Simulated scan of single mutants.
Amino acid sequence: MNYRDVARGCLIRASAMLPSNSEEILRYAALELRQCLECLIYERAWCYKSVLSNDDLKEWQPSRLIKRLLEIAPYADKGVRLTMASTEDENDIIMDETERVLSRKELSKHYHKIGSYLHASFNNDLEPIALNTTSVNKTLERLSILLDEVINSPIAKLVPKAGLFTFDCKKCGERVGCEPDYTVSEFNLHCSNSKCSASYEITFDAVNHQLNYRPDKVSATCANKDCLNPVSIWQRDIKHGNTFTCGKCGLLNIIG
């Protein structure tokens, strides 16, 4: 499925309905534009699927999906500028285009607002309230212009895939990754699998200009005095009442 083509179809159908004085028609237009927003966020996430976990890829709510995406790639909702010059004369600019991307702020502003048009409205006395068609028309038409800019961006889906930092989680095997921020010397990265407690300390090697990772674990020993086997516990597992089984003597240790 080509999400951009689906989004374009949604926008075309919605635009054909606007403006309108009919509540029913405006609700259908809002539904089309809402799906258009979803498709553009799904398309953006698809560009980063190599660093998204299976849990992330199952997330259908665009607001949650883009939130997770920005945790991995902070600039994923920002467009890039692509400039190309002639090989013979660097001042001879052949291309100078800027990608138009739907931002998290724009999604948050419009998604739930137009979603409210799809539900029955009532006042404090539970009496039905009619849609303000004038206001709804203005909102949907403004959104249509924004979506048209994104869909018809001169360049699209430009993602620095070669620069994405990824590795397999040492605990669950899921893909863990992020978009490198070389201005930060170290930071913590959690496995995106909601059932996994692994986390990693990420450090920037300025000499080799690369990122390195190390499991964020704490050293401990088995509570069995006849064993005292050294163990490593994931930092995020150190919570009162959590348990771990000693690999040597089999004792169930309880974290106090």
Rank of each mutant, 00 (worst) to 15 (best):
Y3L: 14
D5T: 15
R8K: 13
G9T: 12
I12T: 14
M17C: 11
S20F: 00
S20C: 05
S22F: 03
E23A: 12
I25G: 03
L26V: 00
R27G: 02
A30P: 04
E32G: 07
L33H: 01
Q35V: 07
C39D: 09
C39I: 05
E43F: 11
E43T: 08
R44K: 09
R44F: 01
Y48Q: 09
L52E: 01
S53W: 07
D56T: 07
W60E: 13
L65Q: 05
K67G: 13
R68E: 12
L70F: 06
E71P: 01
D77F: 01
V80W: 02
V80L: 07
V80I: 11
R81F: 07
D92Y: 14
I93T: 15
I94N: 13
E97I: 13
E99H: 10
R100Y: 11
R100P: 04
R100D: 12
V101R: 03
L102N: 02
L107I: 05
K109F: 04
H110T: 05
H110F: 07
H110Q: 04
H119R: 03
H119D: 06
D125S: 12
I129R: 01
A130E: 01
L131F: 03
N132T: 01
S135V: 12
N137F: 06
N137K: 00
N137D: 00
T139G: 06
L140T: 03
R142K: 14
I145D: 06
I145Q: 08
E149M: 06
P154F: 13
L158C: 11
P160E: 15
C169Q: 10
K170I: 07
K170N: 11
C172N: 04
C172R: 07
V176A: 00
C178N: 08
E179T: 08
E186H: 11
F187P: 10
N188Q: 12
H190E: 14
C191D: 02
N193E: 01
E201Y: 15
N208G: 09
N208M: 13
L211N: 02
L211R: 04
P215W: 06
D216Q: 07
K217D: 04
V218E: 15
V218N: 08
V218C: 09
S219G: 11
C222L: 07
K225R: 14
C227A: 11
L228Q: 15
W234K: 05
W234T: 13
W234V: 06
Q235E: 09
D237E: 10
D237Y: 03
G241P: 13
N242Q: 10
T243Y: 06
F244Q: 05
F244I: 13
T245I: 14
C246E: 10
G247A: 11
I254Q: 02
